[in-house]
């Protein structure tokens, strides 16, 4: 399967998630156990009107979606996943007006759990806005 086709498939998967769709998320890249998803700046997602900085919750939603996408892109994951826990560290406020890009990696997988790390950046790639670590469920394989 070519890279374009897998990005397209992943994009269809994300587009089928109403909440991710409502937040304008787009798949930028997808590989085995890895996903890159962006979320353009939107005034409706602002958390602090005095500064125009995005709400942490919007960044959480992006991290969660991207983590889930990294899990389902793994060949052992099954077709669906759910978040068990997610920890987000906020390094700095996202710069108003800039798109947030999250990259998630599923760095270890057991028969029941997928372990994920994610980083979110705005235009300044050298200073992440937030990082996340999470555990996701692995869908049970159907009996042969």
């Amino acid at each position: 399967m070519s890279q374009d086709v897998s990005i397209m498939r992943a994009q269809q998967f994300i587009a089928a998630l109403p909440h991710s769709h409502a937040l304008g998320m787009q798949v930028k890249d997808i590989a085995v156990g890895r996903a890159v998803i962006d979320m353009p700046y939107d005034l409706r997602f602002v958390g602090d009107p005095a500064t125009g900085v995005l709400h942490g919750g919007a960044v959480s939603a992006l991290m969660d979606t991207c983590g889930g996408a990294a899990v389902v892109s793994h060949p052992d994951a099954g077709i669906s996943t759910a978040t068990l826990d997610l920890r987000i560290d906020y390094m700095r406020p996202a710069t108003p007006g800039q798109t947030i890009v999250a990259e998630a990696t599923c760095y270890h997988m057991t028969r029941s759990i997928a372990f994920v790390r994610a980083v979110a950046c705005d235009d300044d790639k050298s200073r992440p806005v937030a990082t996340a670590t999470g555990a996701f469920t692995v869908a049970g394989k159907a009996a042969p």
Binding site: H19, G56, G57, A58, D64, L86
Partner: peptide, 19 residues
């Protein structure tokens, strides 16, 4: 409806819950 993450169950999106 826009809070849904998994349309098959359906279930709320983890990101909506987190926010």
């Amino acid at each position: 409806d826009m809070l849904i993450g998994n349309p098959m169950l359906p279930a709320l999106h983890g990101g909506a819950t987190a926010a």
